[in-house]
C-alpha cells in the first residue's frame, strides 16, 4: 500500500482552522494511496469555492475551473483520456446550485467519474449566503429573516437522477469516509459522495457536534445498497437520525463502454491518422 503522503502537495491548505474540507482532503489522499494509484494517474477537477481549492493541495493532475462547471469539464477530461482516474470536487453551491443542471445530466451520462461534494450547507467563499442545502428558516447573510426555500436533498435527487453509486460521508469520520471514497473510485460509473463538511466560520447550525449527535452508519443497520426503494426511504431521513454510508449501488454500462469511438483506447493517445478519402463519396 502506498503512502498517503505522496498525494500531499507542497501547498498548505488555506482553509480556516477546523474546516471540514481538511478531513475530506486527508481521507481522499488515504483512499488514493490505499488503491495503489499513482499521482500522475489521477485528475481532480473542481469548480469554484473554498472546497474547490482542493486540487491545489493534492499532488496529482488538477483542474480548477468555473463555478458550477466541474462536472462538464471532468466529463470532457474522461472523454479525452479515459485512462485517467477522474475525480470531481466542489461545494454544495457549486454542484447543487449553479451546477445543478450538469449534476443531473452527469448521473444519466454515467461516465466513470467520482464526484465529491463538500456539503457545508452554506456559501463559504462568498462569506456566508444561503445554499441549496441550507435548511428552511435558517438565517444567513442573504436571508436575514430566515431562508424561505426548502432544503435540497442531494441523496434523493441522485437516486431519482439515476446515479449508479450514491453515498454520504462525514468529514468527522475520516476512516469511514476514506472507505467510501475507495468504493466510489472503484465503482465503474458515476459515483456521488456527498460529504458533511462543516464550515466553522459561516454555518453555526450544522456543526461537528450537531452531526455527531445525529449520524448513524447504514451498514450498521444492515441497509442493502442494492435495494433502490430502501435507499430512497433512507434518503428521506433527516432530523434526529441522519444516515451516512452507501445508499445505493448498481453497476450498469458506462458511457465510455457504450461509445464506439472510445473502443480503441484513450482518445488523447490515438495516433494521428489521415482521413480516409472514402468519406468524400457522399459528396459526389
Amino acid at each position: 500500500m502506498a503512502d498517503a503522503a505522496v498525494f500531499k502537495s507542497d501547498i498548505k491548505p488555506d482553509w480556516c482552522p477546523g474546516c471540514g474540507d481538511f478531513g475530506v482532503l486527508n481521507s481522499l489522499q488515504k483512499a488514493c494511496a490505499d488503491l495503489n494509484l499513482e499521482p500522475h494517474q489521477v485528475m481532480i477537477v473542481s469548480g469554484i469555492g473554498c472546497s474547490s481549492n482542493l486540487p491545489g493541495f493534492f499532488n496529482s493532475y488538477g483542474l480548477h475551473t468555473l463555478h458550477g462547471r466541474s462536472l462538464p469539464v471532468a466529463s470532457g477530461v474522461k472523454l479525452g483520456n479515459s485512462d485517467l482516474t477522474v475525480i470531481a470536487t466542489g461545494g454544495d453551491g457549486d454542484g447543487y446550485g449553479i451546477g445543478a443542471g450538469h449534476f443531473v445530466h452527469s448521473m444519466r451520462r454515467n461516465l466513470d467519474i467520482t464526484y465529491i461534494v463538500m456539503d457545508n450547507q452554506i456559501y463559504g467563499l462568498t462569506t456566508g449566503q444561503a445554499s441549496p442545502t441550507t435548511e428552511r428558516m435558517i438565517k444567513t447573510k442573504s436571508t436575514p429573516q430566515g431562508n424561505l426555500e426548502s432544503q435540497l436533498n442531494p441523496i434523493a435527487l441522485a437516486l431519482a437522477g439515476g446515479a449508479s453509486f450514491v453515498a454520504r460521508g462525514f468529514s468527522g469520520e475520516p476512516t469511514h469516509l476514506a472507505e467510501l471514497y475507495k468504493q466510489a473510485i472503484r465503482h465503474k460509473g458515476f459515483a456521488l459522495v456527498d460529504v458533511f463538511s462543516p464550515c466553522m466560520t459561516y454555518n453555526k447550525n450544522n456543526t461537528y457536534t450537531w452531526f455527531k449527535e445525529r449520524i448513524y452508519k447504514l451498514e450498521d443497520q444492515r441497509h442493502d445498497p442494492k435495494n433502490f426503494e430502501a435507499a430512497m426511504a433512507r434518503s428521506q431521513e433527516w432530523g434526529t437520525q441522519i444516515p451516512i454510508g452507501v445508499f445505493y449501488q448498481n453497476e450498469r454500462m458506462t458511457y465510455e463502454e457504450g461509445e464506439p469511438a472510445m473502443a480503441h483506447g484513450a482518445m488523447s493517445k490515438l495516433p494521428f491518422k489521415p482521413l480516409d478519402p472514402s468519406i468524400l463519396l457522399e459528396f459526389v
Binding site: V73, A74, S75, H102
Partner: peptide, 13 residues
Amino acid sequence: IASMAMAVGAGQT
C-alpha cells in the same frame, strides 16, 4: 455551457 466546458476538459487532456 456544458458543451464548451467539456471541450475544454477534453482539450486539456
